[in-house]
Each structure stands twice: as C-alpha cells, then as structure tokens.
C-alpha cells in the first residue's frame, strides 16, 4: 500500500489528563510513524487538550495514524487538517549576531519577513517571527549562517478555515 508520502497536519482534542501526551508520542514511536512536530496545550475548556501533530506519510499511513489516534481511549476528536482548507502558523525566536556592521542588515531582513525585534543586546538581536513552517525556513535560509546564534521553534499550530471547527 505504498503511495506518495505527503506532509499532513493533524489536529486532535483529548482529555487533559497527565500522561495524555505520552500516549500520543508513544503511539507514534511504537508504530514507527514520523513526527515532524507536536504541540499541545489546554483549550479554553481546561478539561481538554488540543494537539497539533505534523507528520508525513502515504495516504494509507495517514489513514492508519488517524484511526490509531481515534482508538486511544482519551482522544475525543481527530481531524486531518489537510482534508480541507486550513491555516498553519508557527512561532520562531532567532538570536542573531548584530554587531555594528550587521545591525542595519538584520533590521532590514526582519522587516522583509515581518518579524519583530524583541530583545536588543550589545552584540545581538532576538527576532520573533510567525508564519508557516516554509516561511520560517525561508527566513533561516536567507540569513548568513554565521550570524545565527540560536533558534527555537514552537512547531506548527493549525486551525481549519471558516466554519471548519474542531470542538466537542
């Protein structure tokens, strides 16, 4: 059942209980599924956690992932965002060298990507940037590797467009 592998963003709601995250992470490692990123936090309803998992796999593998997630007793709902229109956002913080010669250049790059400088120190800036994973990748690519001191990314969060709503 091998077909082409594609990137999928899966959203799920599960009971906000201790160990919930490890059930999902354990499922992925036990069955050999990819996890590109996984984010989790409680929703406005504190009894529920919302998770966004970015994974890659063939149609058949993605179908199995969705079924296996649904099978977890704590999982309330699962949605493959790629089944419809959706928005994906990720937050990245990048600390870059900003010695006098570089400072203007860094500010300019930051503007082009609509980032914000949120910390300024003697020799460095910390830039905050949100967008799709691709946009964040593009920003990193466009920087001089030697200028990057540190990066941290949250992993993607996703939400359906319009009236595509994942709720209990």
């Amino acid at each position: 059942m091998a077909t082409q592998s594609a990137r999928h963003i899966i959203s799920l709601l599960m009971e906000n209980e201790s160990g919930a995250l490890s059930r999902v992470a354990g499922l992925f490692s036990a069955r050999g599924y990819n996890i590109e990123s996984l984010t989790v936090a409680a929703t406005e309803d504190q009894t529920l956690s919302r998770m966004t998992i970015v994974t890659t796999g063939s149609e058949a593998v993605i179908e199995q992932i969705i079924k296996q997630l649904n099978k977890l007793v704590d999982v309330v709902k699962v949605l493959d965002l790629n089944d419809g229109k959706f928005i994906e956002r990720e937050l990245m913080l990048v600390k870059v060298k900003a010695t006098s010669a570089f400072r203007e250049e860094m500010k300019r790059m930051c503007d082009i990507f609509r980032g914000r400088i949120i910390d300024v120190a003697d020799g460095s800036f910390t830039i905050e940037l949100t967008g799709s994973g691709n946009k964040l990748d593009a920003f990193i690519e466009s920087l001089d590797k030697a200028a990057i001191l540190e990066t941290v990314r949250t992993g993607a969060s996703g939400i359906g467009r319009g009236d595509r709503i994942l709720k209990v």
Partner: peptide
C-alpha cells in the same frame, strides 16, 4: 507477504469492530 497476496485480484469484504484493523495491511 502482502505483495504476493495482492497479486491475485479479488474483492475483499471485512467485518471488524476495530476500524484500525481495516485496510491496515491490505486495502
């Protein structure tokens, strides 16, 4: 092995309580 099994055409009906058991190894 599934490749050998699927080399013969046949229509498969599968009754199971567990949706994850369906189309796991064979469509």
């Amino acid at each position: 092995n599934t490749v050998d099994f699927l080399s013969k055409p046949r229509t498969i009906i599968h009754i199971d309580i567990d949706p994850a058991s369906i189309s796991k190894r064979v469509k």
